[in-house]
């Protein structure tokens, strides 16, 4: 394992920059309100001046696919919230590359948000770099 990957991550530039709150999004749009609530939590924290990161993992990666619509029961979905993230200065968005691969998706399928793809070691580094983690 390289030095870069094993470097301790105390907020120096050895790896991931430090942050206050990492919001992990593990649910896809429409089926539940987890995804919307996670995005809202991220925006609230950012509005209070916290350094916020978003990690799309598990079915949460489905939030990043183009072509989403209002649900058959009128559910709002989450793409409108994604569009608002930049306004709240939530700019550190990450995607679990393994979760994409498991679903047969690639970086080309991620079009709704500029994101950084992370492999396992980097996901670990990310959770280390943020002082708090909320899971949605």
């Amino acid at each position: 394992m390289s030095d870069v990957m094993t470097a301790p991550l105390a907020g120096d530039d050895a790896g991931m920059a430090a942050g206050d709150l990492l919001v992990m999004l593990r649910h896809g749009p429409h089926g539940s309100s987890w995804l919307r609530e996670g995005l809202e939590a991220a925006m609230v924290a950012a509005a209070f001046g916290r350094e916020v990161g978003l990690l799309f993992t598990g079915d949460g990666v489905m939030a990043l696919l183009e072509g989403q619509q209002v649900g058959p029961l009128g559910q709002k979905g989450s793409d409108n919230l994604l569009a608002a993230l930049e306004m709240y200065d939530v700019e550190r968005c990450y995607v679990d590359a393994a979760a994409l691969r498991a679903r047969g998706l690639t970086a080309q399928d991620v079009t709704l948000l500029p994101v950084t793809l992370l492999e396992h070691d980097e996901v670990v580094a990310l959770t280390t770099a943020f002082s708090r983690v909320l899971s949605f």
């Binding site: 749009p29 429409h30 072509g67 989403q68 619509q69 649900g71 058959p72």
Partner: peptide, 22 residues
């Protein structure tokens, strides 16, 4: 179909999946 559409998945289905509406 309705649930595929809302999730942006209609064009991403496997060949053996038969899409039906309500």
């Amino acid at each position: 179909r309705e649930d595929l559409e809302s999730r942006g998945l209609l064009g991403r289905c496997a060949e053996n999946v038969i899409v039906v509406d309500v």
